[in-house]
Design a protein around this nucleic acid. Structure first.
Lengths: 234, 234
DNA sequence: TGACTTTTCCACTCATCAGTTACATATTCC
DNA sequence: GGAATATGTAACTGATGAGTGGAAAAGTCA
């Protein structure tokens, strides 16, 4: 196939071309938002969008094959571009993974903020957090946060992600403790409880990454029901 | 350090030497059983034990660094042996991973059998299964089953493991359905329920792999309690 | 048009690592 | 003792893949 970026006349086509052309591979963007728009965009915006296409394609391939088994040539050829071109948008392979994970954590911020509203009952806030998390994991970048969790990054990057994960975990623990305090939750070790809950959700990208995935909303509903009310019939 | 296998006089010492010598690295064997015994052992038994040491060390390093980031030289040097020597016990890198996973699934068979006893109430049988699974995950080979789950193996091996995992998952689903049938469990989608439960447990090796791990029995107790009775206070 | 910037690619280097070749030394057993 | 078997090593091969150098093509704007 021809290198597309060079030939196409219109910027919008270019960015679409970055995504690989055919529908099944086309990069749908992050959190469901389309990656490009057809309006005339500035050079900087185009650059930013292409960079996002690199990150998104990277995330998808990392999730499919694993970080170590994905070559930069894989990502490049998915985008119909040479490997050298990728280095115009990112400075190395690690940066792709780091940025995907960092963005994923950033996407959670809105949900996190909403979970801190003291007007909402604790159990509902926990459900809110978990539902938001399930939606995050439906996205390639969100799944990347889980599936490539154990790839060792260099010093500063690693700390940034660790802090992000830690604060997410801390929030759930705090909610559990708050629930115990106000009597809505049975006493328990908040650390283990939070680990069990995140664990259940983190496993989703491991099994639900098929051609016909179960809807993450449906999964979230059942998981939340199970975690809050348990298996046992009353 | 000297190559130890060649110099040591006594078989038992040899096998201990295979494990790296110093206590912190010494290979403790599988499922808590010591790997060697001091009785005079036959050549075949020694070979088998050394093979197990290779597998166990492989599993541990795979769990620590990931399969792709573990070289055969890493495993060899952990055992104070040359890489070529490993090839006397296994035929390639994949075989190490495959055998570890296969053995882990084999270790579960006893638990699986006990869970099929119809005299025991369903909820207890589920607890039995999950407790056995948590113990499996405390072992390097068991953790390997989870942490290297997504490494692609060649055709026949992949199918063997898939079948093992599938039947484990199937058992839990069947138990859940049986519980719904006999009224001890609230109606639900058994597939999602089993996924949530295994997910919670599968995540353990991801977070509890430190110098001071939480006891897997303690984790199992809390997880089982949560999954059966839920967060909500009654 | 022509100067300037942005984007792109070909072809390369260099390191890593699975698996092998060729050989050496121990051990077992006749 | 000596043949057969088991255990081990050092040094190599061949493939793979991250990252780069240098230059050409395309786009921008006077």
């Amino acid at each position: 196939m021809q290198p597309v970026l060079k030939d196409s006349a219109v910027a919008a086509q270019k960015v679409r071309a970055m995504s690989g052309g055919d529908a099944k591979n086309s990069y749908e963007g992050t959190m469901g938002k389309p990656l490009w728009n057809n309006a005339v965009t500035s050079r900087d915006e185009q650059r930013q969008q292409k960079r996002l296409a690199v990150l998104g394609t990277g995330a998808r391939l990392f999730n499919d094959r694993g970080f170590d088994r994905t070559t930069l040539d894989d990502i490049a050829s998915e985008l119909n571009v040479s490997k050298r071109t990728l280095y115009y948008y990112v400075s190395n392979k690690e940066e792709i993974l780091f940025e995907c994970s960092r963005l994923a954590l950033e996407f959670m911020q809105e949900t996190i903020a909403r979970c801190k509203d003291p007007a909402v009952p604790v159990l509902e806030r926990i459900a809110l957090l978990l539902r938001g998390y399930a939606q995050l994991l439906a996205d390639d970048m969100g799944a990347c946060l889980v599936l490539s969790k154990d790839i060792p990054l260099s010093e500063p990057n690693r700390d940034v992600l660790r802090e992000g994960r830690r604060s997410l975990d801390g929030l759930l623990r705090d909610l559990v403790r708050a629930g115990v305090e106000d009597g809505s939750i049975a006493p328990n070790d908040a650390r283990l409880t939070a680990a069990a809950m995140f664990g259940a959700f983190n496993w989703i990208p491991h099994w639900n990454r098929t051609d016909n995935p179960v809807s993450h909303d449906e999964i979230a509903d059942r998981y939340i029901g199970l975690l809050i009310d348990g298996l046992r019939k009353r």
